[in-house]
């Protein structure tokens, strides 16, 4: 048939071209599946990321696959082998925090331990903890200054008030989220699914404690300073353009370790523990010290107390 007319020869050429083209596409796809193509990410991972569900609706296998994708992406972006986990909440545990403000000296060791632990960008303007400096006898937060930089602290006549996410029991940020990307876990920690967050920042407007922060840039972290112990709902490498906040070091506390801020505090002002355990240190503080919570009148029920003695 092809010998009958000249057009037949043309058709042959066309067939050949089409075959080459198709073969090219096939090989290209195979290559993309086999090894990282654009952005250090495989076609499969990009595809799976796009169709990834809300954390609470994923099956165990889907979560496992998501964790592996996070590890592969971190390898590509930071050249570090991280371990992303999904440690579940411990039964019978609700976390609570207390800070002794008569012992806090404003050293900011907690702030910098937090930045390191949670893989926060070194160049970005985001820090989960703010240490407020106030005049003694003054508790008007509008008078506070967290940019203080004297030669030595504590400054005479000042007191210091560290503020971070209060892990409210009735969190207004959760109610404000239009896509249910943030919720309270059974152990009382309010978490964010960074892959589900659309970055609308309604939660930031809803939070009365200025505890939520918007991630304007991809975090810049030196590879050797990267914390490789991560959690899906906690300190895993996050995309740009999502809201983040303190999560009581979920990757540590669910395994019985202290939050990084508490471990770093040189004065021992920070007390952390299980609110449901009557013998815990936090329960002793709540029962025996004069405790107060910030903006208690708003009814957000923070699980974060302050006391002085």
């Amino acid at each position: 048939m092809s010998n009958e007319t000249g057009s037949g020869n043309d058709g042959d050429k066309f067939d050949q071209a089409r075959r080459n083209f198709l073969r090219g596409i096939g090989m290209g796809t195979a290559a993309a599946v086999a090894q990282p193509a654009w952005g250090g990410q495989t076609f499969q991972d990009t595809f799976a990321d796009f169709f990834q569900k809300d954390y609470r609706r994923m099956s165990a296998e889907e979560i496992e696959a998501a964790l592996e994708r996070i590890e592969r992406k971190a390898q590509a972006r930071y050249d570090v082998e991280i371990e992303c986990q999904n440690t579940p909440p411990q039964p019978g545990v609700v976390y609570g925090y207390a800070i002794n403000i008569s012992r806090c000296k404003g050293y900011r060791d907690c702030v910098h331990a937090c930045v390191k632990e949670n893989n926060l960008g070194r160049d970005s303007q985001m820090q989960y903890i703010r240490v407020l400096e106030l005049d003694q006898g003054d508790f008007n937060l509008e008078h506070s200054d967290h940019y203080y930089e004297p030669e030595t602290v504590p400054v005479e006549g000042k007191h210091y008030l560290p503020v971070q996410c209060m892990q409210c029991d009735d969190p207004p940020c959760v109610k404000a989220c239009p896509v249910e990307a943030t919720w309270m876990e059974p152990d009382g920690i309010v978490v964010v699914d960074y892959d589900w967050c659309i970055g609308c920042r309604y939660c930031m407007a809803a939070c009365p404690y200025w505890a939520r922060h918007f991630n304007w840039t991809v975090p810049e972290i030196p590879a050797e300073e990267m914390n490789t112990n991560t959690h899906y709902l906690g300190n895993r490498p996050r995309p740009r353009g999502v809201v983040e906040k303190c999560h009581f070091c979920i990757h540590r506390t669910r395994k019985g370790q202290q939050p990084a801020c508490m471990e770093a505090c040189p004065t021992g002002s920070r007390i952390f523990g299980n609110l449901l355990d009557p013998d815990s240190e936090i329960r002793y503080v709540l029962a025996n010290k004069q405790v107060f919570r910030l903006k208690e009148d708003l009814g957000t029920e923070p699980k974060f107390w302050y006391y002085s003695d």
């Binding site: 050293y107 303007q125 820090q127 203080y148 930089e149 030595t152 504590p154």
Partner: peptide, 20 residues
């Protein structure tokens, strides 16, 4: 934490402030 012979905690420099 406390030097038994001088137990008051001495002032020291804070870590850097956050960028404004």
């Amino acid at each position: 934490c406390h030097n038994a012979h001088s137990p008051a905690i001495q002032p020291r420099a804070p870590k850097p402030a956050p960028p404004v």
